[in-house]
């Protein structure tokens, strides 16, 4: 296509949707793997629950304003078309957002909830009725949210991958790549929030997030490289479209900034910090600055991935 129809707003939306999905997934895992003594990873679970609703909400607002007829956006929910990834995605987003919001409420500290409702009930008298404790819902909500978050994470890639007119997109590896990138950026956002917090990070928390993130990044690498290899061995249209990242205008962005700075460098940093734990059972020597840098690099890399795919894909054609 000569004109780029899907621009930065779509990039942002795909990124933010994936980010929320990743944060929710990781926080849900932390909810399930929480130690019985009540400490452990409940901080990750709580942070995740507090963060998860917002990126996806902002993303949805951006998405709606990107529509040519944003005032008709409700029509997306008057139809369900199984053939259209966007239709499936809209419904997934709606359900996922609702679950993240309920989950947010369920994880609100009791004290803060009471204060908020006290203020609210001064204005709306019946508000107090909704001040209920949902903390017992946390595990069921995580369970319901797992498939939804994975669905939202993968859908952002399916949206592109299902377009057979754009050879750069038209492989299911794009969906997997977007999913694992979403999970990894979710980990990274949690790492950023935890390391920016004045409270020190506990060993178990950082080990939990690092272990997950290292797995996600490695899987991502083993999707990104096969994507290139598979494309080079595919039909001519796909080979031609890969030129965009194999010498074309997105080469630097893909290889250096996404794959290098966005995956390999943060992977190296995380592995390096985990080494003492892996080699001997000695405690982790954790450096907040290093953690935050690795996390920021992952977040930027994830954004670049969406940017490269949305733009390069639209430039590819049969």
């Amino acid at each position: 296509m000569e004109r780029i129809e899907w621009g930065l707003l779509i990039v942002n939306y795909l990124y933010l949707g994936g980010l929320s999905a990743g944060v929710f997934f990781v926080s849900g895992l932390a909810t399930y793997l929480k130690q019985n003594d009540g400490t452990g990873d409940s901080r990750i679970a709580r942070y995740g629950a507090m963060i998860a609703p917002w990126p996806v909400s902002i993303g949805c607002i951006i998405l709606i304003f990107d529509l040519g007829n944003w005032q008709r956006f409700y029509k997306l929910f008057l139809h369900f078309r199984i053939e259209s990834p966007m239709s499936i995605g809209s419904w997934l987003l709606l359900l996922f957002s609702v679950v993240t919001l309920i989950n947010f409420y369920a994880w609100l500290p009791e004290q803060k909830r009471n204060v908020a409702f006290l203020r609210l009930s001064k204005r709306i008298r019946s508000a107090e009725r909704f001040n209920i404790d949902l903390s017992s819902w946390r595990r069921p909500l995580a369970a319901v949210g797992f498939p939804l978050s994975l669905g939202v994470g993968i859908y952002t890639g399916v949206l592109l991958g299902a377009v057979q007119a754009r050879p750069f997109w038209n492989t299911n590896l794009v969906a997997q790549l977007f999913l694992f990138s979403a999970l990894s950026t979710g980990c990274a956002l949690l790492l950023v929030f935890l390391s920016l917090n004045r409270k020190s990070l506990e060993d178990s928390q950082i080990r939990f997030l690092y272990t997950l993130d290292i797995c996600f990044i490695i899987v991502e690498l083993f999707i990104a490289l096969p994507y290139v290899i598979h494309g080079e061995l595919s039909v001519k249209a796909v080979q031609d479209s890969l030129q965009l990242i194999m010498g074309g205008s997105y080469t630097l962005a893909f290889w250096v900034f996404f794959l290098g700075m966005g995956l390999l460098v943060p992977l190296a940093l995380e592995v390096w910090e985990m080494l003492p734990v892996l080699r001997t059972k000695s405690p982790l020597k954790h450096n907040k600055l290093l953690t935050a840098s690795a996390a920021f690099l992952i977040l930027i890399g994830g954004y670049l991935l969406r940017y490269i795919f949305v733009y390069a894909g639209q430039k590819s054609a049969f």
Partner: peptide
């Protein structure tokens, strides 16, 4: 019925 998502243009 069109919301203006431009998916069709891309596709």
């Amino acid at each position: 019925e069109c919301v203006g998502c431009r998916y069709c243009i891309v596709a």
